[in-house]
């Protein structure tokens, strides 16, 4: 089953490679991983999307906690949560396609953030499924380039991850 793990980790050189090294060494899956410093510059927060049986997820959580630099780990799937991913997608927007692209962007509440005579660059935010749906809705030959951040997640309500 798919799980989203949120990890607070010391903002130190090499910390990220300890996490990714752990996943590859123990044969765990990383579907996506995002990381950036938090409001406290000594801490980084990672969102790791992974999948595995409950036993595997339990081991992943324990192994992450065992890393000296990991401060805290939570499994967002244990309660209600929100996840968002950002995609930038460059599409062909010439001739007949130009209006169609604008319509698609509007339907998905995307924003066109760069325009040339022949292309649009669209910014789109949502769950991974929404981004997938957008891509599916386009003529594949019209897609010039995509870049996605992977999911970031946060718990709903008053549940917080902080030290």
């Amino acid at each position: 089953m798919r799980h989203i793990l949120s990890v607070l980790i010391e903002n130190e050189a090499g910390a990220l490679s300890r996490v990714t090294g752990l996943f590859s060494a123990r044969g765990y899956n990383i579907d996506s991983l995002t990381v950036q410093t938090t409001e406290d510059p000594t801490l980084s927060r990672m969102t790791i999307v992974t999948h595995g049986s409950d036993d595997v997820i339990e081991q992943i959580t324990k192994q992450l906690n065992k890393l000296i630099e990991v401060v805290k780990v939570i499994d967002l799937n244990e309660a209600d949560h929100i996840e968002r991913e950002l995609m930038l997608i460059k599409v062909r927007a010439a001739g007949r396609d130009r209006d169609e692209m604008k319509r698609m962007a509007d339907i998905f509440r995307g924003r066109i953030i760069d325009v040339t005579e022949k292309t649009y660059t669209i910014e789109l935010t949502g769950t991974g499924e929404k981004l997938d749906a957008f891509i599916k809705g386009l003529d594949p030959t019209a897609i010039l380039e995509t870049v996605r951040t992977g999911a970031s997640g946060i718990a709903r309500g008053e549940r917080i991850l902080k030290i």
Binding site: D55, E58, Q59, K62, Q63, N65, K66
Partner: peptide, 11 residues
């Protein structure tokens, strides 16, 4: 002392 040793191979 190591929680990751528990339930690793045997529940």
């Amino acid at each position: 002392v190591d929680p990751s040793s528990i339930a690793k191979r045997v529940k």
